[in-house]
Nucleic acid binder design. Sequence first.
DNA 1: CTGGAGTATGTTATCGCTAACAGTAAAGTC
DNA 2: GACTTTACTGTTAGCGATAACATACTCCAG
Lengths: 352, 352
Amino acid sequence: MVVTLSQSSPATKRPLTLRDVSEASGVSEMTVSRVLRNRGDVSAETRVKVQEAAKRLGYVPNKIAGALASQRVNLVAVIIPSLSNMVFPEVLTGISDVLDDTPLQPVVGVTNYLPEKEEEVLFEMLSWRPSGVIIAGLEHSDASRAMMENAGIPIVEIMDVDGEPIDAMVGISHRRAGRKMAQAIIKAGYKRIGFMGTKMPLDHRARKRFEGFTEALAKAGLEVADQEFYSGGSALLKGREMTEAMLERTPDLDFLYYSNDMIGAGGLLYCLEKGIKVPKHIGLAGFNGVELLDGLPRKLASMGSERREIGKLAAQIIARRAQGEDPSPEDRVELTPKLKLGDTLKRKKRRD
Amino acid sequence: MVVTLSQSSPATKRPLTLRDVSEASGVSEMTVSRVLRNRGDVSAETRVKVQEAAKRLGYVPNKIAGALASQRVNLVAVIIPSLSNMVFPEVLTGISDVLDDTPLQPVVGVTNYLPEKEEEVLFEMLSWRPSGVIIAGLEHSDASRAMMENAGIPIVEIMDVDGEPIDAMVGISHRRAGRKMAQAIIKAGYKRIGFMGTKMPLDHRARKRFEGFTEALAKAGLEVADQEFYSGGSALLKGREMTEAMLERTPDLDFLYYSNDMIGAGGLLYCLEKGIKVPKHIGLAGFNGVELLDGLPRKLASMGSERREIGKLAAQIIARRAQGEDPSPEDRVELTPKLKLGDTLKRKKRRD
DNA sequence: CTGGAGTATGTTATCGCTAACAGTAAAGTC
DNA sequence: GACTTTACTGTTAGCGATAACATACTCCAG
């Protein structure tokens, strides 16, 4: 039933090598190599001859061998905690945008927020001798740090700037972001504030936001009136459920701060459904400024985390270094997250 | 300010090789190699000695060299159209789940739905001589097909089964899925049906669903009463906007079929907001069965696309083949998408 | 105490490609 | 016309690991 139409396949199962192309086109392997990499002088005539032969045979160069011989690997290791949080694919997009204009290629590794897994992935990646590493976060195991310090390649730690980087760094201050949001909330006159977020032992950025948040509240003589943490599951649903539970438990809350937009959106939908007046009766805010929010009935207050830009800048640093540029102080960049009040945070001071 | 505590680094910038470990531990390179790969007989004594030296020096093996020498590369190329559509990260999760228990490692390439880009990515990936390829879709350029046919490695085409695979295949029939949804809609008694989806020249699966859908409608003497296509932007917002536009243009519609859940959710939120009675006045359905739906005020009718399972099965095929197993007819798997009526599709026949 | 079967190591020859260096012939320079 | 320079092509020697094949040394059976 299945018709196998094999290409002008050389019958032999052995994959093609430079030698095959060399023989087919009557020049040396070296010349073939030069044509295929477009490097060095080759006469137009032989160039065509070789290209034809390569195409006809269906030759695919062996980068393994090429990399070993040239001591150059055009890969950039990108290590992130997760793919299911849309934030990271967006960083990747930024990285790709930049690397697409260079010979470099991103290779992604996922750690699931586990330091041991990060160590593993890092080791695995470094063993391919990439041209650089882009890795989320500033917190790493000792072994991971050591590996990166000794790798002799550019390392860019992204997303976060609250800490000391190994080499380069591009991100925002999550502590500052938390503070800024707290200040906006306070300024709007809210007083009884609830917090919802992920269980944070390993999500350092969420933790730092929370710390900054409580710190700024404290400065204003306030504290978080209730809090709840979740892990796993559908974030939108969790946001809804946690909001319900919290409002039941602590009915006098007048503001809910969510550690990410997804649970924030769940909370918002819940409030709208229950007819709770937002932002008058209860104010809401999330974090990240995800695109999804644009489609909600009401715009959730949030703070952009600049992830696309972070990806771009990180990739640019790697690209520059790969071109031989030296490390510079400009390789440590702090971006400023933009506060968006949306429709869920009052704009003027509450008259009370 | 920065304290650089460099490992007992050998001062030299030159990366470590097997020889360094060999010298440090007083045995041959071969023995070191054996210890590090845990292969062949080595005395417990030397094993420890070598491991210590390797750790002390911070040695990271060079897989480039290893792969070249052993002619084995434990990478699996995974080629998908996009990362921003949550569907694909979920497939990746399935793949990782399985490959984590093997020595194999996924490497992801993204094509942005462009055949030329697919060709590029494929070429790039194959030049690393991976142990297998998992690629979305059955439609590829001639050059891409040729490359895969000649690569001499297992190829698993995923997501779709409406077509002839190069080698293995795991997916659902999108044509059938479209038909099935149409039948459910017809059975529920809806008659004036609108369709919204992505611009489809290159999204073959969306196209097939639409074809199956219209085909089944035709069989019942119906046709799509209105349709609209979008591209780019926030899907949730697009869903909202398109729904508004369509209901304005064709007010007598009684059902809206969305080619994915995200725009469906946007449409649902719009309808709820406008007080349109769902599913009585208007029925709604999407496609994919994404987790997000769980958090919506009303559950959107949808059809699961089994993507996690697809990823798993595909990875299992590659893993088996990598172990030397021969191709088998079981390597072509059609999964059955499950229809979920949710709260937006009437359950009984309309009395009219 | 000789031989065969293990263990535990070392040696040698690639793997497929590229850097570096060597030609060789044609063209340009003074 | 001898001497560079330029344009092209080839030769040689690795890159850093592993496969495959030695080579020692045990240990024990017969």
